[in-house]
Amino acid sequence: MKKIYPDAAAALDGLTFDGMTVMSGGFGLCGIPENLIVALRDSGVKNITAISNNAGVDDFGLGLLLQTRQIKKMISSYVGENKEFERQFLAGELELEFNPQGTLAERCRAGGAGIPGFYTRTGVGTMIAEGKEHKEFAGETYILETGLIANLSIVKAWKADEQGNLIYRKTARNFNPLMAMAGEVTVAEVEEIVPLGVLDPDCIQTPGIFVQRLILGEHEKRIEQRTIRERENA
């Protein structure tokens, strides 16, 4: 089975439907599937439940799908960088479910691993715990969180081979390998596709079984907070 598609639109063909759940990898704007987000927008699909740690910025990343009102609900841990998000949320046009970041990551990992729920200390005694099962283990209280799966996961990696084996680069890894596992269908975009045998099998971070479709993307890699230090004069 050939996994490589000619472009992002072709890679999403037949996968989108109104009301679908989509996981989108990345942390801030780092390691987001830029090309697939644009293709998802252009597909015109509506009422998306988007699971992503953040919501992009107004004109980049998932912000593009907010502009066009294609997202009905977001499941995220932090959305502070997006003014359009703020406006839609305050106007009651957008549903929002906050998850602690570690809970969100583990929900994706668990969902992809066939684990329907897990107990965690995170959120005990806070509003996050309201309505959730509480259980004691060795005298400590934990709450039940559920695994997440998505109809479609879109992820970004650095390199892939023709089997869809993926490796990531630096902190652009973040949620991508977890979401790749949790998609009923996972589409990956990468900066380079190499022939089989080029990637060191010991260094594969997402085995190709988790990736059904693959494209070569072009990446702007926008930076949110450009922080630098000055060289001292020698």
Binding site: Q101, T171, P177, L178, K221
Partner: peptide, 23 residues
């Protein structure tokens, strides 16, 4: 751009650095 901290600021790595998933 592939190397940021949790505040989304650009940073650098050290010789001891390791990278891993959010999980």
């Amino acid at each position: 751009p592939d190397l940021i901290n949790a505040g989304k600021q650009t940073i650098t790595e050290l010789r001891r650095t390791s990278y891993f998933s959010s999980a």
